[in-house]
Simulated scan of single mutants.
Amino acid sequence: MKFTAENAKQVLTHLFTGFKTTFNKSFAETEITWDKVATKVTSTSAAENYAWLGKFPKLREWIGEKVVKRLEGHGYTVKNRSFESTVAVHKHEIQDNELLGLPVIFSSMGEESKSFPQDLVFEALTLGFKNKCYDGKPFYATDHPVGDKEKSKFSNKFDKKLSWATLADAEAGYGAARSSMLGLKDENGRSLKIKPNLLVVPPALETTAKALMTAAKFADGSENIFKDTAEVLVEAGLATDTEWHLLATTKAVKPIIYQERQTAELLAQTDINSDDVFMRGEYKFGVEARGEAGYSLPHLAAGSTGTT
C-alpha cells in the first residue's frame, strides 16, 4: 500500500500490527531462567517495603499466650526503576519501502524485553557480596543475625573455589557451603529445614560444576559424595569467572525477589499531527518497563567469590 497523507493512519496501524506480531513471537520464544532463583512480586507503587522478611512462620508448642511475630522490625524497601528502548522510523523510509531491517529490530526488542527480568535478577545475585538485604548486611555476609538475637550470627559468604579435583577440595568449597545451609537453625535452635538444590555458576565453571554434580568419582578417583545434590544453572550474567552460588529454591519464597511494576510492552507514537512528525518526519516505536530485583532471605543462599 502506497504511503500518502490520506492513508497514513491506516498504513501506520498495519505496520505497528506487524511490528507487534514480530515482537510478541520473539518474546514468547525467548528462554529465561530467572524464575528458578527469584520469586515474582507484583508491585503497585513506586517502591515496596518487605517488613515481613525474617519472620519465619514456624509452628511452636502453644503453652500460655501465643507469641506474635510483628512485621515492623525491618525496613527493607525495594524501589522500582524505569527502563526503555525506542527506535524512530522516518516517514521517508515508509514511503520508499525501506523497512527490511525493522523486523530484526523488533524481534530483538521482544527478546530483550523477555530477558529484562533476567538481567535484573542475576545482577542482584552477582552483587550480593556488597548490596544489602533486609537485615542491613550484604546479602552474602559473615555476620547475619539469627532472628532477633544479635549475639547469634550465621555466615553465608565463602571464598573457596568450586572444585571436583579431590574430596578435600570439594568439601572445603561446595561441601562447606552446603553443610552450612543444611545446618541453619532459628533463634530457638530449631532446624530451618533448608535444602540447597541449585548451583549457579558462570560459563567458566560449567565443566567443573557439571562434573561435581554428575561424575561418580572425583578427578583423583575417590567417590563423589556430592553427586546429584544440586541442579547446575550456567549464567553469563554473573560478574566474575570464579564466583558460584548455592541456592535453596523450593521454599515459599526464593532467594531473589523480582519486583514487577510494569510488564515490558511495545508502544507506538504514530500521530501524524505530532511535532516529531512535522519537525523531523519521525514515528517512534518502543518498549517501556518498570521493576527491580532485591533480596529475600540470606538463609536461602550461600555465595563464594571463589578466590582462594
Results as ranks from 00 to 15, higher is better:
residue 1 M to E: 09
residue 2 K to T: 12
residue 10 Q to R: 10
residue 11 V to K: 11
residue 11 V to E: 12
residue 18 G to D: 13
residue 22 T to I: 14
residue 23 F to S: 07
residue 24 N to K: 15
residue 25 K to E: 15
residue 27 F to K: 13
residue 30 T to L: 11
residue 31 E to M: 09
residue 32 I to Y: 06
residue 39 T to E: 05
residue 40 K to P: 02
residue 41 V to A: 00
residue 46 A to M: 07
residue 47 A to H: 12
residue 49 N to F: 00
residue 52 W to G: 08
residue 54 G to K: 07
residue 60 R to P: 00
residue 61 E to N: 11
residue 63 I to E: 10
residue 68 V to R: 07
residue 71 L to D: 09
residue 72 E to Q: 10
residue 73 G to I: 00
residue 76 Y to T: 04
residue 76 Y to R: 03
residue 78 V to F: 06
residue 79 K to S: 12
residue 82 S to I: 07
residue 87 V to C: 01
residue 88 A to C: 06
residue 88 A to P: 03
residue 89 V to R: 11
residue 90 H to P: 04
residue 92 H to W: 09
residue 93 E to R: 03
residue 94 I to N: 09
residue 97 N to M: 12
residue 97 N to C: 04
residue 97 N to D: 10
residue 100 L to R: 13
residue 102 L to D: 01
residue 106 F to E: 05
residue 108 S to N: 11
residue 112 E to P: 00
residue 112 E to H: 05
residue 115 S to D: 12
residue 116 F to I: 01
residue 117 P to K: 09
residue 119 D to R: 14
residue 121 V to T: 04
residue 122 F to C: 04
residue 122 F to E: 09
residue 125 L to H: 07
residue 129 F to P: 08
residue 129 F to L: 05
residue 130 K to L: 05
residue 133 C to A: 14
residue 133 C to W: 12
residue 133 C to G: 08
residue 151 K to M: 04
residue 154 F to I: 03
residue 155 S to A: 15
residue 164 W to Q: 08
residue 169 D to T: 10
residue 174 Y to R: 02
residue 179 S to A: 15
residue 182 L to Q: 12
residue 187 E to C: 02
residue 192 L to N: 12
residue 192 L to G: 05
residue 202 P to H: 07
residue 204 A to P: 01
residue 207 T to H: 10
residue 215 A to T: 01
residue 220 D to I: 04
residue 220 D to Q: 07
residue 228 D to M: 01
residue 228 D to P: 00
residue 231 E to Q: 13
residue 235 E to R: 12
residue 246 L to A: 11
residue 248 A to M: 03
residue 257 I to F: 10
residue 257 I to L: 15
residue 257 I to T: 08
residue 258 Y to S: 02
residue 261 R to F: 08
residue 261 R to Q: 15
residue 262 Q to F: 10
residue 263 T to V: 12
residue 266 L to F: 10
residue 268 A to L: 02
residue 268 A to C: 08
residue 269 Q to W: 12
residue 271 D to M: 07
residue 272 I to C: 01
residue 273 N to Q: 14
residue 275 D to V: 10
residue 276 D to I: 02
residue 277 V to H: 05
residue 285 F to E: 04
residue 287 V to I: 14
residue 291 G to R: 09
residue 291 G to T: 06
residue 294 G to I: 05
residue 296 S to G: 00
residue 301 A to Q: 02
residue 303 G to Q: 07
residue 306 G to M: 06
residue 308 T to S: 11
